[in-house]
């Protein structure tokens, strides 16, 4: 039961959102030229940290906007939510 700050609508209940998995995964522009192994890394490999995690969320039952979030997977603290194209915030001090 998270309280998520939509970058447009402000704090809303988790039920209005869908999580879109890990954020900041670049779609390879040279997809046709890279190996299956390299492409598989893009397609399948995701981090699963115990700690801070860059994620994508969609305010699906609200303004329908996709955005990014920095969430801690243990405490569920959401350090930041930010719009597409905005620079991703650094990880909190002392973490990697």
């Amino acid at each position: 039961m998270l309280l998520i700050h939509c970058p447009w609508c402000g704090p809303r209940e988790e039920v209005e959102f869908r999580c879109g998995g890990q954020g900041h995964i670049a779609r390879p522009a040279d997809a046709m030229d890279i190996s299956d192994a390299e492409y598989a890394r893009y397609l399948f490999m995701r981090t699963n940290p115990k700690g801070w995690h860059y994620e994508r969320w969609n305010h699906v039952h609200g303004c329908r906007r996709w955005f990014n979030a920095l969430r801690h997977t243990v405490t569920h603290e959401i350090r930041a939510t930010y719009r597409p194209g905005e620079k991703k915030p650094p990880l909190p001090d002392g973490t990697t």
Binding site: R27, R56, N58, V60, R64, R65, W66, P84
Partner: peptide
């Protein structure tokens, strides 16, 4: 719809 919006908002802006 959600997937197409995802592509338009996050990928092919």
């Amino acid at each position: 719809l959600s997937w197409l919006e995802d592509l338009l908002q996050m990928e092919w802006t």
